[in-house]
Amino acid sequence: MKQIVVGISDLKVSGNAGDILITYALGSCVGVAVYDPVDRVGGLLHFMLPDSSIDETKARRNPAMFADTGIPLLFKSCYKLGAVKKRMIVKIAGGASIMDDMNYFRIGQKNIIAARKIFWRNGIIIDGEDLHGNYNRTVKLNISNGKFYVKNFANLFEEL
């Protein structure tokens, strides 16, 4: 088993059955895992902010930073490895927020809304989600079988 770490504003894809893609402490960021069970190809994105229009230069250099540039790149990167859109399973986790976070800097909520919009516009159904709350999540995707795990606040991985 090879564990491949996905950093903040980063994405990794793989078609090797021995790989586990993992990303730590999502906070308000959102982790998006996609997997084609026929081709056994998958990818994991850890995006940070909803909208690339705040810094388009940065978005060109590092598309994985934003939902609107990161999610399309995640899919395209999987297609390159042979994945097919209509077969792909999509799971998302993260989008946590500070307590009483009404009215200001709702980055977690905005990240979730941004992701939902993109999937909706592209006719993609979200097959599993673990969102909101006030805690960090670590997630991993097993490329051999597409199982997606979320670490809860008791520090245990549970399959989503």
């Binding site: 402490a25 906070g27 500070i98 009483d100 200001y104 805690y135 960090n136």
Partner: peptide
């Protein structure tokens, strides 16, 4: 905390204070 930088078990379980927006006149952007 929001970005999970050096995130711990306490995670984001702290209170948000709305005053901060007016205090610094800081926009979301």
């Amino acid at each position: 905390m929001m970005m999970g930088i050096g995130g711990g078990v306490d995670s984001l379980a702290y209170r948000g204070l709305k005053e901060v927006v007016n205090k610094f006149n800081l926009r979301q952007r």
